[in-house]
Amino acid sequence: MLETMESLPDGRVALRFTRRLAHPRELVWRALTEREHLRAWFVDILDYERSRLDFAPGADLAFVVGDLPTGRGRVTAHDPPVLLEYTWDAEVLRFELAEDGDGCLLTFTNIVDGPETATAVATGWDTGLDRLVTYLGGLDAVG
């Protein structure tokens, strides 16, 4: 669920979401960084075959959505399996994984241009993170 929506001094807005996951950080890290896992829960409209999603330190990223101009990004923080942060055009996406008993706590922060964008994307991220929880539960079922 959306925990906070904070206005930043530069006019941007930080949306913060948390999920308690009954999975070790290493498994969740793979779901956040590996193409075959991302396509199960992340942005539906992304062309995963044509996008460049190599989440290595300092890596350049490319987000391809149909015939639209390719979104560009860069990995700005990378500390497996604790922290992944990258840009997607003007946005910042930050995933933090903290140990929590036999699972982990995921804190996701999305920094966007302003309140209108924040309102427009908040529900989508809530849905996407719920899909991540469901997807990870399905991995348990297959062993």
Score class of each variant (00 low, 15 high):
Arg52Leu: 10
Asp67Pro: 01
Arg94Ser: 09
Arg30Val: 14
Pro9Gly: 14
His37Glu: 14
Arg30Phe: 01
Thr109Leu: 10
Gly66Thr: 01
Asp89Phe: 07
Gly128Tyr: 04
Thr123Lys: 09
Trp29Gly: 07
Ala62Glu: 15
Leu27Met: 14
Gly114Thr: 06
Leu21Met: 04
Phe55Cys: 12
Ala118Gln: 04
Gly66Cys: 05
Asp79Val: 13
Ala122Leu: 02
Arg30Asn: 11
Glu36Asn: 11
Thr127Tyr: 01
Leu83Ser: 02
Ala22Asp: 15
Asp67Gln: 14
Asp130Ala: 14
Phe55Ser: 12
Ala31Val: 02
Met1Asn: 10
Arg20Lys: 05
Trp41Leu: 07
Ala141Gln: 13
His78Pro: 01
Arg12Pro: 03
Trp88Tyr: 05
Thr4Ser: 15
Phe63Leu: 08
Thr109Ile: 03
Val13Met: 12
Val112His: 03
Arg30His: 08
Arg74Val: 11
Gly124Lys: 03
Arg25Ser: 14
Val65Pro: 00
Pro24Val: 13
Thr70Phe: 01
Val64Ser: 00
Thr76Phe: 00
Arg94Asp: 02
Leu105Tyr: 06
Pro57Ile: 07
Ala56Thr: 14
Trp125Met: 08
Arg25Met: 10
Asp113Ala: 15
Ala120Gly: 09
Leu32Val: 00
Thr76Ile: 06
Arg74His: 01
Gly71Asp: 02
Glu99Cys: 04
Leu136Arg: 07
Thr18Ile: 00
Thr70Ser: 04
Phe17Asn: 13
Phe17Cys: 07
Leu68Trp: 13
His78Cys: 06
Ala141Ser: 13
Trp41Gly: 09
Tyr86Phe: 15
Met5Asn: 05
Arg39Met: 13
Phe63His: 07
Arg25Gly: 15
Tyr86Trp: 12
Thr70Glu: 10
Pro115Met: 14
